[in-house]
Computed example of a mutant assay.
Amino acid sequence: MRPNLINMVPAIEGEELVYLQALTKDLSEDQLVNFIALYNGKRKKTDQILLGCVLGFVLISGIQRFMVRQTGMGILYLFTGGLCLIGTIVDTVNHKKLAFEFNRKMAIESMAMVHAYR
């Protein structure tokens, strides 16, 4: 029986679940387990990104961009005060999109690693 992604990936949301189901449909059960182990170690939950955005208001602007490996944007936010807080506000509103884009990249990277170990 094929493992259920909802039970294997903590705090997964709808769009991410649909994406992962389409991405992993052709994997064997062992490959799926390996993929999930790799993916869970790399992915960011949306609440982690939201926390980074909130911390950008009170501590270090751009921390959310560093969390999703957008170093250039993180440095820009750091030196401009989150683009005068406007960029930080936009990121706070769009934190789910930031998390999904990062997680999609991590899923592709994890899938490449699973295929490399065949």
Results as ranks from 00 to 15, higher is better:
Y19G: 00
N40D: 11
L38E: 05
I36T: 13
Q21E: 14
F79P: 09
K105H: 15
Y39K: 00
M8A: 15
D47A: 09
R104M: 12
I108M: 09
N103Y: 07
E109G: 09
V90W: 11
S28H: 06
R69G: 08
L85G: 03
L17T: 00
I75Q: 08
A22S: 14
N7T: 14
M67W: 00
I89R: 04
L17H: 02
Q70L: 11
K44L: 10
D47N: 11
I60L: 07
K105T: 15
I108L: 12
A11L: 15
A99P: 03
T71M: 07
Q70H: 10
E101H: 11
Q64F: 05
F102N: 01
Y117K: 12
K44D: 04
I60N: 01
M111T: 06
I36G: 09
S110E: 03
P10W: 05
L59P: 07
Q21S: 10
N4Y: 09
M1G: 14
V93E: 09
R69V: 07
Y117V: 12
M8R: 14
I86M: 06
G72Q: 02
M8G: 12
S110N: 05
V90R: 09
Q21H: 10
D26H: 06
R65C: 08
R43L: 02
D26L: 06
F57S: 07
Y77S: 02
E101N: 13
L83Q: 05
L20Q: 02
M67P: 00
V90M: 12
G14T: 10
C53G: 02
G82K: 00
G52I: 04
I6A: 11
Y39I: 06
G72F: 01
A37G: 06
T92A: 09
M8W: 11
I63Q: 03
D91S: 14
G87Y: 00
E29R: 11
N7V: 10
K42I: 04
I49L: 11
A112H: 12
L23P: 03
I89Y: 06
T80V: 12
V18D: 07
S28P: 01
E29C: 10
A112K: 14
H115Q: 12
L32P: 05
S28A: 03
F66Y: 07
K42Q: 10
E13A: 13
V18G: 04
H95W: 02
M67E: 01
V58R: 08
G56P: 02
I49E: 01
Y39L: 02
R65D: 09
L76V: 15
T71I: 13
A107D: 03
R2S: 15
V54E: 02
R2E: 15
Q21G: 10
G74H: 00
S110K: 02
E109R: 11
D91C: 13
K44F: 05
Q70I: 10
